[in-house]
Design a protein around this nucleic acid. Structure first.
Lengths: 171, 171
DNA sequence: TGATTTTTTATGATTGAGTCATATATTCGT
DNA sequence: ACGAATATATGACTCAATCATAAAAAATCA
């Protein structure tokens, strides 16, 4: 069963188009970088994570993450706090403004994915969901990988139904 | 018919995961930037396009594109030629090495999309194809948009069957 | 307990992709 | 033929991110 080159080519184009659309929409929120937008949502979902954890989710060097947080702190989006049980670690927390901006990033991403979904027939929407679930399970390769994949998600939404990425990560 | 937030959230995660996977795999080819990789494939598909056309496909400023081509020329991947009918315009053509690297970029992207496809059941693969076709049509907003969406595709593959993006662009 | 290794944050120096402002040459429209 | 539009190019600069390195706290283990 050799893979259908035509279909895989389209999957690539689909990814290019969708990723570009999401990036563009998120850029419209007006944050200093896409990394900042991603960090904002990541922190929203996991408050009080250390810079080191953030570093892995964002796939940056540690100094890169430190500088990203510096900038976001300057912009009044996050605050540094000393971790109570490990005085080396710095935990990062959103300010009210940061929380506000994080919601805007989530809305921006959702706007694009909703637009794509709306272009499909009801039946296509129905069959697509389990396909996405299956693909996400296959793409997940452990805890760190799961955090990276879900880094721009509204995690509250997946909680009740169960996130396939989290399930697969806990294998 | 309010959209299913759970499904759109997963579509976002799917895009994040797939786009990151593709970027990472393409980075493994060892070119100086993702832009260079994209330019390489774009030029492969449309040889002798001008820098100005490239600029639009890659979504760069003109000077950005000029500098990208400078670098790629230094790396021996492309050659500048004066356009025969417009002496202002510079057309860009791949060297043998450039062609070689472009194929590697295509293979890198295909490897990731094939892996995802392979994780699906035969039936899921069958129903996914027309869904992708429909979504791509919806995501295409004209000629320039089509070029951007297909910028990392192996365009030869879509020719026989017909690329939904091109069809939609020619509306 | 005390010494060594590991983990975590931070900073100075640098890189490199990309932008902005501007210059120059060619083509097009009238 | 002249003015507007189009195309390439370059100098100065920005900014995200890296590399190399330092220092402090925690964990390990002898």
């Amino acid at each position: 069963m050799s893979t259908d080159t035509y279909a895989t080519n389209m999957l690539g184009a689909f990814t290019t188009a969708l990723a570009a659309g999401i990036d563009e929409e998120i850029s419209g929120v007006g944050l200093r970088s896409l990394s900042a937008a991603t960090a904002l949502v990541t922190i929203r979902n996991h408050s009080d994570d250390s810079i080191e954890v953030l570093r892995r989710v964002l796939n940056l060097t540690h100094s890169g993450a430190v500088r990203l947080i510096n900038g976001m702190e300057e912009d009044g989006l996050v605050e540094r706090h000393r971790s109570p049980h490990d005085t080396r670690a710095v935990t990062v927390r959103l300010t009210a403004e940061g929380r506000n901006q994080a919601e805007q990033v989530l809305r921006a991403r959702a706007a694009v994915t909703e637009r794509v979904f709306a272009a499909l027939t009801d039946e296509q929407q129905t069959v697509l969901t389990p396909i996405l679930k299956m693909a996400l399970q296959a793409l997940t390769e452990g805890r760190d990988s799961a955090r990276r994949i879900c880094r721009l998600c509204d995690e509250g939404v997946c909680r009740p139904t169960g996130c396939p990425v989290e399930l697969s990560a806990a294998e």
